[in-house]
Design a protein around this nucleic acid. Structure first.
Lengths: 148, 148
DNA sequence: GCTTGACCTTGCCACGGTGGGAAGGAGTAA
DNA sequence: TTACTCCTTCCCACCGTGGCAAGGTCAAGC
């Protein structure tokens, strides 16, 4: 199986397959006489695993921890759960940050006259940093936010 | 005022001030005889504006749209509101994606024995893509997620 | 004066993931 | 043979931020 087929079967682009190989996330594929990468069903299975983990928001670094657990029959399910819950924590933190931003912006937008006059609480807030003089979650007042 | 003072006063790192200048987000600063960048209170004001907009999750590209509106006394508050609400939409979309991931992961983790046995619904799901054979939001089933 | 230390300058490199594209080889089908 | 698709490697881009290095400047203290 060439890289194109492995890509189609796994949903991981050829670009990314080569990238994962280069960075050591997956082992180097065997090569045909002509130098083409050759994949087995098992390799595709691994790629699918990676793809699904990415879809669930795991970083490549986290998947690096997940893969050996997946391959290790001696693993403790506890270890996996710890990784998963750590990831959930990270996701929740980001969600909380964004929720705070959304709340602030919505509040500002509500006070916006929304017409052709130049008075605008949104710009005013951005300029003066008062965050609408009310109701905005405290995390936002001190620049903690920034989701990155 | 040198770049260091402008940085301290605005909360934007010197690195980022130079970056914003290089990429054209802010105008090139005047220079002293020795070539040092020189800033005015007004420049600091602009940097604070940028900083607060970043804290609210606006991208640099979005701020590029916001700045002229801020500087333009003829602006219509409607235009600002549109930009802000577009941004809120984007934030909401990301939040929804992440909430879906969180829900899926939590559901999987709940079914985890959380001990030293190797059976693990989380890894099983990642390998087989059934997403816990229930309850997971449909968006997740087909790889739509992936937050970036 | 001279030294020291804090500050400034530019430049390059890195991150995480992903895509684009070029230049050239390999395979396959008509 | 030709034509087309696929493969290879290599470099470049995004975005926003930080780090480090080599060198210039400035102000304070001796």
């Amino acid at each position: 199986m060439n890289i194109g087929q492995a890509s189609a079967a796994s949903g991981v682009s050829t670009k990314m397959i080569r990238y994962y190989e280069r960075t050591g996330l997956i082992k180097s594929a065997d090569r045909s006489a002509a130098g083409y990468r050759v994949y087995t069903k098992s390799d595709v299975h691994t790629l699918q695993f990676i793809r699904r983990a990415r879809d669930l928001g795991f970083s490549v670094a986290q998947i690096e921890d997940l893969l050996p657990l997946w391959n290790n029959r001696e693993r403790a399910s506890h270890d996996v759960k710890v990784l998963a819950m750590e990831h959930v924590e990270q996701l929740c933190a980001k969600v909380a940050e964004m929720e705070a931003m959304i709340a602030t912006l919505k509040h500002l937008a509500e006070n916006c006259t929304d017409d052709d006059r130049p008075d605008c609480p949104i710009l005013k807030d951005l300029a003066e940093g008062r965050h609408g003089e009310c109701a905005s979650p405290p995390e936002n007042r001190f620049g903690v936010a920034r989701v990155g």
